[in-house]
Design a protein around this nucleic acid. Structure first.
Lengths: 340, 340
DNA sequence: CTGAAAGCGCTTACAG
DNA sequence: CTGAAAGCGCTTACAG
């Protein structure tokens, strides 16, 4: 009664020696059972399994990692203020895809949020102290010290999106942002729009510069009044659209570099009394959940996020296995709905 | 040139012995420097620090943890499908508060999402393998095996909200849900409303049952047609409101057990041509960011989430230090805005 | 197939 | 204040 209540007794955890003793075998045999059961006789195997159940043994990961030099876990590092993780459905998909792909290999994914400079330091220390075998780096900005530190420590890293300035140093997986943007811009022009503005992502990220480059490929060098940068948040989409409306009131289309910002832009347009797409056509990027939740539903560029996750995990595993860094670029696809 | 490109050389990590040799001291002295610098002479201290810098030494956490039996990290376990984390601003605040409070003690918080049964198993294994010193358990449902496993393994655990069925086993921090609900229900009646419905949270969580109990305290046993359960998501708020409108078309007020669900309920009311609060008054619970973003802004019950975070961390630390479990109940407060 | 032994990289009494 | 030594709990060749 008293035993079953209150704090669970902090009895010392059973070790492999305890299991070995109960099973009547040596510690080495217990270890072999734990690590695949090869070279173990059937009776020994069963005795060990029974002993494990009886003692409630759980391996001590620190001891194991100390000798194997592996932790069987990886870090998902989000180099953004925490709010972004919560606001942007892309991260959601990405995180889920990576978690699942790693779980299949029995690797635990630890989510860490490196929003502040201080966070980045703490996380840099954490991941380089051997806690993880590798890192998936999401949404890092050019000039961030994080990627430098991870790379210089020799930690296997895979970035999501082209890591500006580190294209040859670290592996990465990216959608073909430039081509996707080109498709969208070309489509908008083909629909008869003449004054096509762009809301870009941050210009220290590949999504920012590459989607702008694709727009330029299709439409040539734009009037500077038609270009405003956002930071991928909904609020920044609203604000950027306001600025565009002031700077270029005659625009008849806008290519927005993310669906979430596009949803924000639509809010601003409605508030200004503009109809979408009749007065202003709006194209997004991502094809995330926001695209179909938005009214009208977004014409957008689909990037294959779950495929991106599995490729990131694949590259991470090969990198942990000692391979050279490499890059994977995935196709994008125009998805036409109502907003443009 | 080739050296600076491609894969960083996987040189073996420097160990304490390397540092000791460079500094010309023993390994013990290096360890003392690392652990606070007590009982170390000034020259030795400086020599070691220089050697650490020169070698780029980083402690091997596994080796350290093996002897200290501590990992200096804790798990934040969200026992919900992943989407909930992203949708509900409460988790955001909670996570941030806990991360920060722990960072001050140099403890890293690992976020794990235990949405599926399989996740829960994997995470149970992970946290009981010594990876973390304790766990913060958020949004667990009655009957979930997770809390049993953690507790039976003797892992220090602090729950957010009253852990139904484990009130004496594990520490927890909760807002006074029942009193908050009582305040809201009393307020709604004082405003002249006569047919006051309730959208509850899941009835296998304390937030679900306790807020319903507070409503009962104030208004007595309700007509069953006035009670519908949601699951704290916005979508469930919309659906529950639709059901209420069908079951009790004459209702003139509704107490919704979370702000996010309340926002969903308002969407449904507007869609049905009802004005808020003129036709139907809506009261929320949480006072999260949703409350002020909603139109009209929500009258709601404030729960002190950041205070809850710091208390959770405090209890976790005392539990890790070996103290008996205890509970902290924090006051709630009615916040009147436009929706009721 | 199995056991004895070395060793992973630390911390921490213990002498000095 | 400092060094030598034991020991944390595992895995993995190495003999047998």
């Amino acid at each position: 009664m008293t035993e079953s209540r209150g704090r669970a007794p902090r009895r010392p955890r059973p070790t492999m020696d305890d299991v070995a003793q109960v099973a009547g075998v040596s510690r080495g045999t217990v270890s072999r059972v734990l690590n695949g059961g090869h070279y173990v006789s059937a009776p020994a195997l069963e005795a060990v399994q029974r002993a494990i159940r009886k003692t409630g043994y759980v391996v001590n990961q620190h001891a194991r990692s100390l000798v194997t030099q592996r932790s069987d876990s990886a870090a998902f590092i989000l180099a953004e203020p925490q709010d972004r993780l919560f606001e942007d459905p892309n991260f959601n998909i990405l995180l889920r895809g990576c978690t699942q792909a790693l779980a299949e290999r029995d690797i635990t994914l630890l989510l860490t949020i490196a929003g502040t400079q201080e966070d980045r330091k703490r996380i840099g220390r954490y991941v380089t102290a051997g806690h993880v075998d590798g890192a998936l780096l999401v949404s890092d900005h050019a000039g961030s010290p994080l990627i430098d530190e991870l790379h210089s420590r020799g930690l296997p890293v895979v970035a999501c999106g082209r890591p500006l300035g580190h294209e040859r140093d670290v592996s990465y997986v990216a959608a073909d942002d430039r081509d996707g943007a080109r498709q969208m811009a070309t489509y908008l022009r083909s629909r008869g729009h003449r004054t096509i503005a762009i809301i870009t992502g941050p210009l220290d990220t590949s999504g920012g510069v590459d989607r702008l480059a694709g727009y330029r490929d299709a439409l040539g060098e734009p009037d500077p009044m038609l270009v405003v940068a956002g930071d991928y948040t909904r609020a920044s989409g609203e604000a950027a659209m306001e600025q565009l409306l002031r700077q270029a009131p005659d625009l008849d289309a806008v290519f927005v570099s993310s669906d979430l910002m596009a949803a924000g832009a639509i809010t601003t347009l409605h508030r200004a009394g503009k109809r979408v797409p009749a007065d202003v056509a709006v194209g997004g990027f991502d094809d995330s959940a926001v695209a179909t939740a938005s009214v009208p539903r977004l014409t957008t560029v689909r990037q294959p996020l779950s495929r991106i996750s599995t490729e990131m995990v694949r590259l991470l595993l090969t990198s942990i296995a000692g391979e050279q860094p490499s890059a994977v670029i995935l196709q994008t696809e125009l998805v036409v709905r109502e907003s443009a």
